[in-house]
């Protein structure tokens, strides 16, 4: 209970930030890297057994161990403090590959 409470606090503290997508760090395999991945990695480290959990992408610092540092790095990635992981060495992914820009014509101002 105490652990869960602290982990919930983690979620609240980290509910803002930038987001980019990479496979490394996406421990719950939802095609997104966010605070849930950091939370689940922390849960894995303290033995809570989160599920689903892909351990193969959790070692983001490439030290051959899934530990609290990995959770920290995923959290840092989520809030934009880092933009890639040592284990991935990938170039940043492209967001917004296609954008649809609103056209402003006179009818917009007629209402």
């Amino acid at each position: 209970m105490d652990k869960n409470l602290i982990l919930l606090l983690l979620v609240f503290c980290l509910c803002a930030g930038n987001l980019a997508a990479q496979v490394t760090g996406d421990v719950n395999v939802d095609n997104d890297i966010n605070i849930i991945d950091a939370l689940m990695t922390a849960q894995f480290y303290v033995g809570l057994g989160p599920s689903p959990f892909d351990q193969s992408v959790a070692d983001v610092d490439a030290d051959n161990d899934v530990d609290i540092i990995d959770a920290l790095m995923i959290a840092q990635f989520y809030v934009g403090l880092i933009s890639s992981f040592p284990a991935s060495k990938v170039i940043p992914p492209l967001d917004y590959k296609v954008v649809r820009v609103p056209v402003i014509d006179l009818s917009v101002f007629e209402n």
């Binding site: 602290i6 930030g17 403090l81």
Partner: peptide, 27 residues
């Protein structure tokens, strides 16, 4: 001990957010 480590995460990330305008070390 584990709880202390998790609290450490909170503090570290929180400080990181506050200092987000600074280039992190090693970057």
């Amino acid at each position: 001990m584990k709880n202390i480590i998790i609290i450490g995460i909170l503090l570290t990330v929180w400080i990181g957010i506050c200092c987000a305008d600074v280039i992190p070390e090693g970057h």
